[in-house]
């Protein structure tokens, strides 16, 4: 099985205070720590497990600056073979569709059976890149995949997709295909010191847009379908009711509301 895994470096905002920066189009990331997008971590593990079972290669791809090498190296340390990082100033302002165009340009020349992405990015939450990538590559896809079974001939797979309410939908599809992976599909391993040492010897190929045969107008804001205008903090809407007063009063009010709505 020849596999490609797309990974994204994202800020960890779970336990941090998030502020909008001066541009109004991004958050201030100067004090945040960064890591691999959670769903991508499961995607990496899925590819490596398949490689361990059936053989083949795992090629890691990321769009981003030099900082992203950390996430790429970690994937290589866990068992990835080769890596590409797409870096070009013109990529700034790209939406998921434009990112997918750059990834597709890098992947289309490769012989691949499965391309893995995370189902959803922790930062923008768009869930666009994987499915757009499948369309651009002209191959099958399944999103929110929580089970992958390679069928005997290695030309088809059976995938389980996670639906609402814990339901699973099973489909069979022909390879090649793009699968966007949902968290919880496996137990991601942790890179060992040995693996990290070996990964240091593997090369990360840096590709610009011209290396990929893309024009600057195809990516960035010009090549995107969605353009980010500005970030604003959530505003208190009409539907929201803010309880005020001493804790005893607000607790009593809250209890009354919950009882009235039949929620307790």
């Amino acid at each position: 099985m020849n596999m490609v895994v797309c990974v994204k470096r994202v800020p960890d905002t779970a336990e941090s205070e998030v502020h909008i920066d001066a541009s109004g189009k991004d958050i201030d990331k100067s004090k945040l720590s960064f890591g691999i997008n959670e769903a991508d971590n499961y995607a990496v593990e899925e590819a490596i497990q398949i490689k361990e079972r059936l053989g083949g290669t795992v090629n890691v791809i990321s769009v981003g600056g030099k900082d992203s090498d950390e996430q790429i190296r970690m994937a290589l340390a866990k068992g990835g073979d080769e890596a590409i990082r797409i870096e070009d100033p013109a990529m700034a302002g790209s939406d998921g569709f434009a990112i997918a165009k750059a990834l597709a340009a890098a992947i289309k020349g490769m012989e691949f059976d499965i391309v893995f992405t995370g189902a959803l990015a922790d930062d923008d939450g768009s869930a666009v890149v994987g499915v757009a990538l499948a369309e651009l590559l002209g191959v099958n896809h399944a999103a929110y995949v929580k089970k992958v079974e390679i069928l005997e001939d290695g030309k088809k797979i059976k995938v389980g997709r996670e639906l609402e309410g814990g339901l699973m939908e099973f489909l069979e599809m022909e390879l090649p295909a793009v699968l966007t992976i949902q968290t919880g599909i496996n137990e991601p391993r942790y890179a060992s010191f040995k693996g990290i040492k070996q990964a240091a010897k593997k090369e990360i190929a840096i590709k610009s847009l011209s290396d990929l045969g893309l024009d600057a107008s195809e990516v960035g804001e010009a090549g995107s379908w969605a353009v980010l205008e500005k970030f604003t903090p959530p505003v208190v809407g009409e539907m929201a009711e803010i309880l005020t007063g001493e804790p005893e009063e607000t607790a009593a009010k809250l209890a009354a509301i919950l009882k009235e709505k039949g929620l307790v």
Binding site: G35, D69, E70, R73, M74, A77, Y190, A191, S192, F193, I196, K197, A199, A200
Partner: peptide
């Protein structure tokens, strides 16, 4: 160096 930084992050995750 990068090797030790990656290792720290990996152990921290663990």
């Amino acid at each position: 160096d990068e090797e030790k930084t990656l290792f720290r992050n990996s152990v921290r995750d663990f």
